[in-house]
């Protein structure tokens, strides 16, 4: 029963992952990513991480995927039917991916005692997780929050339109220096 559930979820995740990287329509790709994330959330639940599963669904699927769709909308030309996907370097990319997968899989398969039951795993509930986060690892937690803050501010700075008039002049400070030689061409 468990294995069947795992198989279905894993199959869903893998299939949709392939769809993400292969679908020609980017909007479809984003939606397929949502499917993958939901399938993974199911796996989390099966692995006893129910809180994480809900976080995944709420934050990832609800937040990130929505954000992606917004991003897609904003980076789309007027009159375009949709961003065209033109893959390049497919062969070397596939080669690298296959080699890496082969090596990793070989490592997993050839490692003895991976599934030897060590101790009966205690279920980690939301309460235990919360304690671990804000008591044992509070420093890392706060650092992550700082990071998020910096990322938000940085994203705003990068994406801000400095000069409402021209598109090209909207380069942020970090890109200004490279914009100069461009203008000189």
């Amino acid at each position: 029963m468990e294995s069947l559930g795992f198989g279905i979820l894993a199959g869903c995740a893998l299939m949709s992952a392939f769809a993400v990287v292969r679908s020609a329509n980017l909007v479809h790709a984003v939606l397929w990513l949502g499917v993958t994330l939901v399938a993974t959330a199911g796996l989390y639940a099966m692995l006893g991480a129910s809180f994480l599963a809900s976080v995944q669904v709420l934050l990832y699927v609800g937040g990130v995927v929505t954000l992606m769709i917004f991003g897609l909308m904003m980076t789309r030309r007027h009159g375009d039917s949709g961003p065209q996907i033109e893959d390049v370097r497919s062969a070397p990319a596939a080669l690298a991916a296959i080699i890496l997968f082969g090596a990793t899989a070989w490592a997993v398969v050839s490692t003895d005692g991976l599934d030897a039951p060590v101790t009966p795993p205690p279920a980690v509930g939301p309460a235990a997780l919360g304690r671990a986060l804000v008591r044992d690892h509070v420093l890392a937690f706060e650092t992550i929050s700082m990071l998020l803050l910096v990322a938000i501010v940085g994203a705003i700075v990068i994406a801000r339109r400095k000069d409402p008039g021209g598109a090209a002049a909207a380069a942020p400070a970090s890109a200004a220096s490279v914009a100069v030689p461009k203008a000189a061409e």
Partner: peptide, 12 residues
């Protein structure tokens, strides 16, 4: 497998 699929997408 998921990672390598992602890697393929990243590169291609």
């Amino acid at each position: 497998a998921l990672f390598c699929v992602g890697l393929y997408g990243l590169l291609a």
